[in-house]
């Protein structure tokens, strides 16, 4: 099967690769680019573990062909930390509020929460729960995930602190 050349931007870096048309975006990210943060969970568009940001939207990368992402701007969990290496407010929130146990759903949860907070910087608890309704967690019961997202929303909307 002839391969197709694809180019896209992933976490701010231009990347390219040769893929079969049937290569799913999640496989391109994990196998061609060695970005294994986005996880393969259910493979049936239900669980959200493979969620990445694609052109300003949360998508399930197990249900997008890499060729469909030609030219796209993509962000994964590997691109969430600040340039100086400090954690993004969402990563900090998941740590501070104990928003994970096994951690399998966490990269997808954080990428979904990232887009949710871009669209709605101060969501209510209900809006957070509906916002992450496409992401399953089998450990936490969601309570601390909601708390982690609330933590991040508060931190992101607070005035910047002066550097010490």
């Amino acid at each position: 099967m002839a391969k197709t050349h694809v180019t896209m931007t992933v976490n701010g870096q231009a990347v390219e690769g040769l893929v079969e048309p049937r290569t799913l975006l999640i496989h391109f990210l994990r196998e061609n680019l060695s970005l294994t943060g986005a996880h393969i969970g259910c493979e049936t568009s239900h669980c959200g573990a493979c969620t990445v940001d694609l052109d300003g939207q949360s998508v399930k990368s197990c249900t997008v062909f890499a060729v469909q992402a030609q030219g796209a701007d993509i962000r994964t969990i590997e691109g969430m930390a600040n340039p100086d290496g400090t954690l993004h407010a969402l990563q900090d929130g998941f740590r501070e509020m104990h928003g994970l146990q096994c951690g399998f759903c966490t990269p997808g949860m954080i990428l979904r929460a990232y887009r949710l907070l871009q669209e709605n910087p101060n969501p209510t608890e209900d809006e957070i729960r509906m916002g992450i309704s496409g992401n399953l967690c089998r450990c936490t019961g969601y309570q601390n995930i909601v708390a982690a997202i609330q933590y991040a929303a508060a931190k992101l909307s607070a005035p910047q602190e002066q550097a010490a």
Partner: peptide
């Protein structure tokens, strides 16, 4: 219909 990610695509 479905969930936010599915509705986006």
């Amino acid at each position: 219909i479905a969930d936010p990610q599915v509705r986006a695509r």
